[in-house]
């Protein structure tokens, strides 16, 4: 028999999960929106990691902002929440790896997370630790959604006939 507490938690989870879903949606929409307007700058930001040729960086820099916006919109409406949360987490892990790489190589760049990034000027300092911590927090939010994907005000809930 389920205890009263378990029943209460089962009812509360969809409400709790709604928060990370909407927060992640906002993160992606802002991150993608800031980059989509200037694809040349986005390409330079990717290029600054020195992980690929400029031609490849150009493609990644163009595709990434739109992918981020799409992920944001999908999380906002709550479609296939578990899958979008897994993809979010995977992308964040890739970003963390990229920033760690830049850090280990002693590159002096802006991560380009919420901007068009690029190389830093002489006076500016890098913030790799902060950037990584922030991305780890986003991975944690995604993880919560992977674990408890059902949330309120989601298309998933509507399609499953939940009220």
């Amino acid at each position: 028999m389920e205890s009263a507490r378990q029943i209460r938690m089962a009812a509360a989870w969809p409400w709790i999960s709604t928060l990370p879903r909407l927060a992640l949606a906002a993160v992606w929409l802002v991150a993608g929106g800031l980059k989509a307007g200037d694809l040349a700058a986005s390409a330079r930001a990717v290029n600054a990691y020195q992980l690929m040729s400029y031609d490849a960086a150009e493609v990644v820099g163009a595709v990434q902002p739109f992918l981020e916006i799409a992920l944001g919109l999908l999380l906002l409406i709550g479609l296939a929440t578990r899958l979008t949360a897994v993809i979010s987490a995977a992308l964040m892990v890739i970003f963390i790896a990229g920033i760690s790489w830049a850090w280990s190589q002693g590159l002096r760049i802006d991560c380009g997370c919420f901007s068009s990034g690029g190389e830093l000027g002489a006076g500016e300092s890098t913030a790799y630790g902060v950037d990584i911590l922030r991305d780890v927090a986003f991975v944690a939010l995604s993880g919560l959604l992977v674990w408890r994907p059902r949330s309120r005000f989601s298309l998933d809930g509507f399609l499953l006939g939940e009220r």
Binding site: E58, V59, A62, F66, L67, A70, I87
Partner: peptide, 12 residues
Amino acid sequence: LFAAGLIGWTTL
């Protein structure tokens, strides 16, 4: 998501 990536590609 594939379509979104395609938008980026064609824009480029």
